[in-house]
């Protein structure tokens, strides 16, 4: 069997295996799947009045917050991937993979790809509810971009989670996996446009690459889709994914050092 075909088969097998977490213990996944929707409903109900501020870019706070909750769902999914990997390491399952001749990048791809596919589940639930309560329809292009960004963000969050799992080899690193990515997502234009953020958050959001990611996912919901609003987000995602994948791979190699 060619190497390429063998590698694809390995990735597919690993993705299938991690889908068990969802299909065979459905109860355990429910809080993680619903949390972004709950936050979405909560944030929009509580802070909906912010659209009344002069200079706010849309009149629908729901449409404004959708991309944030989408990113949050992706971040949760990625963190959960890290927690599951930490459990696999604790229980010795990961030794089985490490002792096999599967190339290391293939092992990482199997873990990360499953996170990126899985992130579409909380996203779908969120979008259905958001549209039901009156969020703007972003157009097919806008929706497509948002979903690509969700999968990209889940990839980034999963490489972050796996890096930490390799580093700490313990599920007790879970809060770090979750909080780290949530900070990345919320220290952006999550609650309000850049100009309306106060002091320090404005500065942080300006340099935080995830701000570009949120804005790329947001554009269809609050206005028209432009290439100019899209590419910075994609570049930011690619950059983060490459950086964190390298970190995760290094962590995996150190496991057997």
């Amino acid at each position: 069997m060619s190497n390429f075909r063998a590698n694809v088969a390995m990735i597919r097998a690993l993705v299938r295996r991690s889908s068990n977490e969802l299909l065979r213990v459905p109860g355990a996944a429910i809080p993680g799947v619903l949390a972004p929707t709950i936050f979405f409903l909560g944030i929009t109900s509580a802070f909906g009045g912010l659209t009344l501020l002069p200079g706010f870019t849309t009149s629908s706070y729901q449409s404004f917050v959708i991309p944030v909750s989408l990113m949050q769902g992706a971040a949760f999914t990625g963190a959960a991937t890290g927690v599951n990997l930490a459990r696999d390491i604790e229980q010795g399952w990961f030794d089985r993979l490490l002792a096999s001749p599967a190339p290391r990048p293939v092992l990482l791809a199997g873990i990360v790809l499953s996170a990126s596919l899985r992130s579409l589940i909380p996203a779908t639930i969120l979008l259905i509810i958001a549209f039901a309560i009156g969020a703007h329809w972003p157009g097919f292009l806008g929706l497509g971009i948002a979903l690509v960004v969700v999968m990209g963000m889940a990839t980034v969050a999963a490489t972050w989670g796996t890096s930490l799992a390799f580093r700490f080899k313990s599920q007790s690193a879970a809060p770090l996996m979750q909080a780290g990515m949530l900070l990345f997502v919320f220290l952006t234009t999550a609650y309000a446009p850049l100009d309306l953020l106060t002091g320090w958050l404005q500065d942080v959001a300006r340099i935080n690459p995830v701000t570009q990611v949120v804005e790329a996912a947001r554009q269809g919901f609050v206005g028209g889709v432009t290439w100019g609003d899209t590419w910075p987000g994609l570049v930011a995602l690619a950059g983060l994914a490459v950086l964190l994948s390298a970190m995760a791979l290094r962590g995996m190699r150190r496991m057997t050092a």
Partner: peptide, 23 residues
């Protein structure tokens, strides 16, 4: 030593996965 087997997988699936990992 600590037979690292995924409790959620079925016996056959585990063997199939292992075969795939060996190409």
């Amino acid at each position: 030593q600590e037979a690292a087997l995924d409790p959620l997988m079925k016996g056959r699936e585990l063997l199939q996965l292992q075969a795939t990992l060996h190409g």
